[in-house]
Amino acid sequence: MNVQSIDIGIPESGRLEIAAGLSQLLADSYTLYIKTHYYHWNVTGPMFNSLHLMFETQYNELALAVDLIAERIRALGVYAPGTYHEFSKLTVIPEDSAVPKTDDMIKNLVAGQEAVVRTARSLFPIVEKTHDEASADLLTQRIQLHEKTAWMLRSLLE
């Protein structure tokens, strides 16, 4: 990982550890963006219009989120990953091998949203230890949004 020499009150080792975690969050978020966009294009059935619009809202939000996460990595003096190759190594969200049925799309997106929450939550110990309030704020916002989105998606399955 390339790291710049900066003095923002967080030691280099802490910045590297936070950036590594944020890189996984970035990879998970970008992979979820791709999956959500893919489902937006390919959803079918009686809920087509509602899900098509819901997925669009979700992938647009994720597109903004990946920029915020990558910019936080850069603010820590580390280069952000940005290739499919890097993301595929970092993410825990699986790719689809075929277009799933609508209910499976929703289940997969719930699982993806929850995975992003787990990744974000796992970063709090190092963020708190290094007093990185800016990253903590970003993580809190991401967790709140992904938990709400997962709840909304789960509600469709009841």
Rank of each mutant, 00 (worst) to 15 (best):
T83R: 05
R121G: 09
P125N: 10
T57F: 06
P125E: 03
A111L: 08
M105I: 02
S88R: 07
I69A: 12
P94V: 06
L62E: 11
F124R: 10
V116Q: 06
R74G: 14
V127M: 09
S88K: 07
L62G: 14
H52Q: 11
D67G: 07
M105E: 00
M54I: 12
Y59L: 11
L62Q: 12
S97W: 01
V110S: 03
R118W: 03
V78W: 08
E71Y: 07
P100S: 02
E128I: 05
T130P: 10
I93K: 02
V127K: 00
A75P: 13
N60A: 11
D104L: 10
E56I: 07
V99H: 00
D96M: 11
V110K: 03
V92Y: 09
G112W: 07
S88V: 00
R121S: 13
R72Y: 14
D67P: 09
L64P: 09
L123F: 09
H52W: 04
I69Y: 09
L68T: 12
E61N: 15
N49Q: 08
G82L: 05
E61P: 09
I69T: 08
F124G: 10
A75M: 12
S97A: 11
E128W: 00
A80E: 15
S97P: 02
K89S: 12
I106G: 02
K129R: 10
T57G: 14
S88F: 06
N60Y: 05
I106V: 13
L64C: 04
G112A: 09
P94C: 03
R121Y: 14
T102F: 01
P81I: 05
R121Q: 15
F55C: 03
A70P: 08
A65K: 06
A80H: 02
Q58F: 03
Y59I: 01
A111M: 01
T102W: 01
T119I: 12
P125R: 04
I93G: 02
D96T: 08
V116S: 06
A70R: 11
V66A: 04
Y59G: 11
P100W: 03
L62I: 05
Q113F: 06
Y79R: 11
R121C: 05
R72L: 04
P100K: 07
G77M: 09
D132Y: 05
I126Y: 06
P125L: 04
Q58V: 05
H52K: 01
R118Q: 15
K129D: 15
R118V: 12
V66P: 13
A75K: 13
E71Q: 10
A63D: 06
E86I: 04
R121P: 11
L123N: 07
L53S: 10
T91Q: 02
E71F: 03
A80M: 05
F87Q: 00
L68F: 12
A115V: 08
L53D: 13
Y59T: 10
T83S: 13
Y79K: 10
S122E: 14
M54F: 15
F55P: 07
E71P: 12
S97F: 01
K101D: 04
V66N: 04
G82A: 05
M54Q: 15
F55A: 05
Y84K: 03
A120H: 02
Q58A: 15
L109M: 04
T130N: 08
T119F: 09
